[in-house]
Design a protein around this nucleic acid. Structure first.
Length: 232
DNA sequence: CACTGATCATGT
DNA sequence: ACATGATCAGTG
């Protein structure tokens, strides 16, 4: 089976979930070098200045809608694409960014309509063996899989989300640290620590604060990997 | 080894 | 400025 024709540049959006998964599975075992070459794309020496490079390449391969829209990667399928760096033993090496943390105009928002629930409703996880000692070109795609939160997982996510959002509603965003949240934490999401956005302060006034994002703890995503690959 | 706060590129 | 894609780098 020739491998040079199983992927092509300018990939069309997948027409079904099955097609998306099949495409993703065809990437398993392949290196970034191989994949980048097929898309006539260069490979950075490290990801220090191109942190999203792997994710963007996967979007290209799988036919995700390009650009930075606040939506799922495959809106017609209701699927979000997430790459996840893993160790050779299958542990998540990093937390997973989920969505921006809303800090203002929170009255209409509840868990059911939150950006976190929307993004995590169905995720195509693409694990990449990405220990820091492995050159980017030599990093290999592991087996992608589709995941939706179980009722128990969704309950945990909802509780964390509601706890965080209550504090934010009360004007306590600046008391929130990454220590809070069992599986869903809030951390800075900005170009640097001087960036400011608006939020509600302790007395209901508008304050300037660092933009934040919701992240899944690596403990949690490692569990998803273990569940899927039967490593428990 | 896990974790937290900081950071980088790109497009709208 | 904000949302997309995330990993880096220092600490315990």
């Amino acid at each position: 089976m020739p491998s040079f024709q199983s992927l092509s540049p300018n990939v069309e959006p997948p027409r079904s979930e099955a097609e998306l998964l099949q495409r993703a599975l065809s990437l398993a075992g392949r290196s970034f070098a191989e994949i980048a070459q097929q898309h006539q794309t260069g490979i950075p020496q490290h990801l220090r200045k191109q942190k999203g490079w792997g994710g963007m390449l996967m979007e290209l391969c799988l036919g995700a809608s390009a650009g930075s829209k606040p939506e799922q990667d495959f809106p017609h399928l209701g699927v979000e694409l997430k790459t996840i760096p893993i160790s050779t033993k299958g542990r998540a090496l990093e937390s997973t960014y989920v969505a921006i943390t809303p800090l203002l105009e929170l009255k209409g928002i509840d868990w059911q309509h939150s950006n976190v629930r929307l993004k995590l409703a169905k995720v195509l996880w693409v694990p990449i063996i990405a220990e820091r000692g492995i050159p980017v070109a030599e990093r290999v795609i592991s087996t992608p899989f589709l995941w939706s939160p179980s009722p128990a997982q969704e309950a945990m996510l909802q509780k964390d989300w509601e706890d965080h959002m209550e504090l934010i509603s009360l004007g306590k965003i600046d008391t929130i640290t990454a220590h809070q949240g069992e599986i869903l934490q809030i951390r800075p999401k900005a170009a640097n620590s001087k960036v400011r956005t608006q939020a509600t302060g302790p007395n209901g006034q508008i304050i300037a604060t660092l933009p934040r994002g919701f992240y899944l703890r690596s403990r949690f995503t490692s569990g998803l990997l273990a569940d899927h690959f039967g490593l428990n």
